[in-house]
Simulated scan of single mutants.
Amino acid sequence: MKQLSSNRCFGGLQNQYEHASGVLNCTMQVSVYLPPAALQGNVVPVVYWLSGLTCTDQNFTTKAGAQRVAAELGVALVMPDTSPRGVGVADAPDAAYDLGLGAGFYVDATQGPWNSHYRMYSYTVDELPALVESALNLGPRRAICGHSMGGHGALTIALRNPSRYVSVSAFSPIVAPSQCPWGEKALTAYLGNDRSAWTVHDTVALIEAGAAQLPMLVDQGTADNFLEGQLKTPLLERVCKRKGYAATIRYQDGYDHSYYFISTFIEEHLRFHAQHLNAL
């Protein structure tokens, strides 16, 4: 990895790197926070953060205020970009914010022109961890969390790979992309019209199908403009109750979809993950 920047932060380092991705067939950027424990030569566990529509690796890095708590807990933070980028990478013809650049939806596209680059599932699950954990002496214990589209990514990736993550959390996740406009648009473009191919990228469908139990925390703001039309948190509540899936789902009164919401509760999420990352 080529280091692009490095800033001292709460005794650790907030770094940004660039690397060639064979999975995505382009150059990618990723931000990593290394806590003081990592700089002292210790192997530290990792929390992966997946951001939402229109975001890059920098949104959470600069807005969430997570580094202070990560430094205290001795966990690294890894923040990838939300889609492939660069010359030749397909984008929505109308430059829409909910498809193409900044909107990879953490799936492996099977439909053209997206399938040449848009393989964010394999990148997030396999290529990126293998790269950063080896290069920076991190892991092997890891957790995953995210926001909105990234909350969808975190939940579905963890449910499909319970042996790879000790816990999962999400802010305002798209819990049923098969049943909302954002999800239907993206999954049709990337995966085609066969809805049976969508179910492995749908949290509600995965739990309905019997996904293994994993420590799960979900926070949703009651003043979120996208709650009813796009996020559909009640569907997650109902399927968890029906299937006996022990998720903690909290509604936070008056909070919206913004990073003000995330920055308010990110400490609780990191402490939630640390309990499981440090369990023997």
Rank of each mutant, 00 (worst) to 15 (best):
R164L: 15
E184F: 00
L236F: 05
C55R: 10
T188R: 01
L34G: 09
A92H: 07
F265T: 10
L191P: 00
L159S: 03
P36M: 12
L217A: 12
L128Q: 07
V46L: 11
Y190D: 01
L50N: 12
E127W: 00
M1Y: 12
L101Q: 08
V87K: 09
T124K: 01
L277A: 06
A186R: 02
L138R: 00
P173L: 04
V89D: 05
S134P: 00
D202S: 01
G221V: 07
M216L: 09
G102E: 01
V23I: 08
T203F: 01
R195Y: 01
L206F: 06
A223L: 11
G65V: 08
V46N: 03
H201Y: 15
Q16I: 11
V30R: 10
H273I: 11
V166N: 05
Q230V: 12
S167D: 08
N7S: 12
L136E: 06
Y260K: 11
R271I: 12
V125W: 07
T61N: 14
N225I: 14
R250T: 15
G11I: 11
A70P: 06
T124A: 09
L50A: 13
E228W: 06
V166T: 14
W182H: 10
G88T: 08
I144N: 03
Q179E: 09
V69G: 05
T233N: 04
L155I: 13
V23P: 00
L214M: 12
Y97V: 10
T82Y: 03
M120I: 09
S5K: 09
L24M: 14
A76F: 02
P234C: 08
D57Q: 12
N193Y: 05
V218H: 03
T27F: 10
Y17D: 07
V89S: 04
Y190E: 05
H147T: 13
T54V: 14
S21Y: 03
T248G: 11
A209R: 04
T233H: 06
V125H: 10
S134H: 09
C180E: 01
P215E: 04
T82C: 13
A212W: 04
S51E: 09
Q179K: 05
T54Q: 11
V23C: 03
A95G: 03
H273Q: 13
E268D: 14
N278F: 15
M216R: 03
Q230D: 14
F226P: 00
G86P: 00
D219V: 06
N225V: 15
Y260H: 13
G102L: 02
S163Q: 13
Q230F: 13
R68L: 14
S21T: 04
G52K: 07
Q14I: 12
Q58M: 14
N59H: 11
A76N: 00
A70N: 10
M149D: 04
V23S: 02
S134I: 06
V46T: 11
A186D: 05
R195K: 15
A38H: 01
N25F: 12
W182Q: 01
M120D: 05
H147D: 10
R242V: 05
W182D: 02
M1K: 05
F10I: 15
H269R: 07
T264G: 08
G65N: 04
L24T: 11
